Amino acid sequence: MYTAQLIDDPNDISDLQEEWKILHAKSLTKTVFQAFAFQSVWWETLGVGKRILITVRNEEGKLVALAPTFVHVESGSSQLSLLGCVNVSDYLDVLVDGSESEDTESIYATLLLAVEQIKWTKLFWCSLPEASATRIFMPKHFAANGNINESIQDVVPIINLPSTWEEYLSAVGRKPRHEIRRKERKLEAVSHEYLVLDDPSETDIEDFISLHKQSSHDKNEFWDDNHLMFFRKLIPALAIEKRVKLFFLSVENTRVASMLAFDEPGSLALYNSGFSLGTHDDLSVGSNLIAYTIRYAIEHNKQTYDFLRGDEAYKFRFGAISTNIYDIEITRT
């Protein structure tokens, strides 16, 4: 027997922090984007509307599921979305205790009945992973009283990592292997240094932002006041939980490339990267930094290297394969 509760009081939500962390560690899907720290910073800096957390507990009072949501007005209609949706969150989903797998369907049934109690015209849950159980149970639940549409939102390229760097180079293919080694050799001819930070300073964060801005016009346009605040708060919050790595490549004592990555238990995920255009372009500093981080992931026993959203060609040159993330839209009838 499971019971659901809708929670919207900020103090009650804050009180859930420790239970949230425990559930996250055991959840069927448990990306950094679903962590309390990420979701809290997102709401503080980018959230709009009304935040509502849906909790499900078993008979002993143990938290077995959590759906962080918010209700907001979109195109004149009341919309229920997952917290974090959509632009800075590459994966989102309900947290469901994996140790309760025999009762997953019952847990979802209880949670989705609570979703029905919230006033909304349209439901939009974005960035669901391929393996998400939400993709199974939500359409089934709303089949009789809603117009349901599931669509592929984007491609997520992932490298399945071998146990050694040499095995990776062998598997990636002759041409990519040649390019990686050629670019490494060219970089080795100049003074350079790689730096890996798990507790970046304010100066480090500002250097990362500066390099990201310089990479392209679109990246520079991204940095409005809200996104600046989001990253300035997010990186320290995740650093406390040892979930973040900030990489730099310096050439002749100048930082010329940077990458912000999320350090998951079995994966290193490339969240954002940037490099200085017009400075050492002949050294392929962006490509060399990616190669270094792939090697770093292998040497730290990661099973996957996740490029996160986007089908940019360079990701596949490094040996990535495509997976998808999905959006579910439901309009009440």
Rank of each mutant, 00 (worst) to 15 (best):
I7S: 03
I7D: 10
I7W: 08
D12P: 14
S14E: 13
E19K: 06
L28P: 14
K30G: 14
K30L: 00
V32D: 05
F36Q: 02
S40N: 15
L46V: 09
G47S: 02
G47K: 06
T55S: 10
R57C: 12
E59T: 13
E60S: 08
G61F: 05
L63R: 02
L63N: 03
V64F: 06
P68Y: 00
S78W: 10
L83Y: 00
V86R: 12
S89I: 08
D93H: 10
W120R: 03
T121N: 15
L123D: 15
W125H: 15
W125K: 08
W125V: 11
P129D: 01
E130I: 05
E130C: 04
A131Q: 14
R135E: 04
R135H: 07
P139E: 00
A143G: 14
A144H: 12
V156E: 12
L161K: 05
E167C: 06
E167D: 14
Y168C: 06
S170R: 10
S170N: 14
V172M: 09
E179Y: 13
E184D: 02
L187N: 05
V190C: 01
H192A: 03
L195E: 10
L197D: 05
D199H: 04
E206R: 09
F208K: 02
I209V: 08
I209S: 07
H217W: 10
H217S: 12
D225V: 04
L228A: 02
L228R: 14
F230A: 11
K233M: 06
L234G: 11
L234S: 06
P236I: 00
L238M: 12
L238T: 09
A239Y: 00
K242N: 11
F248T: 00
N253G: 04
T254D: 14
T254V: 09
V256A: 01
A257F: 01
S258C: 10
L260K: 00
F262M: 09
P265Q: 00
G266L: 08
S267I: 06
L268P: 15
A269Y: 04
L270Y: 14
Y271Q: 13
Y271H: 13
S273C: 09
G274D: 07
G274S: 02
L277D: 10
D282S: 14
L283N: 03
G286Q: 07
G286E: 09
N288A: 03
L289F: 01
L289K: 03
A291R: 01
Y292K: 03
E299W: 12
E299C: 05
T304Y: 13
T304Q: 12
F307R: 02
L308E: 09
F318Q: 10
G319I: 08
A320V: 04
N324P: 14
Y326D: 07
I330H: 05
T331M: 06
R332W: 00
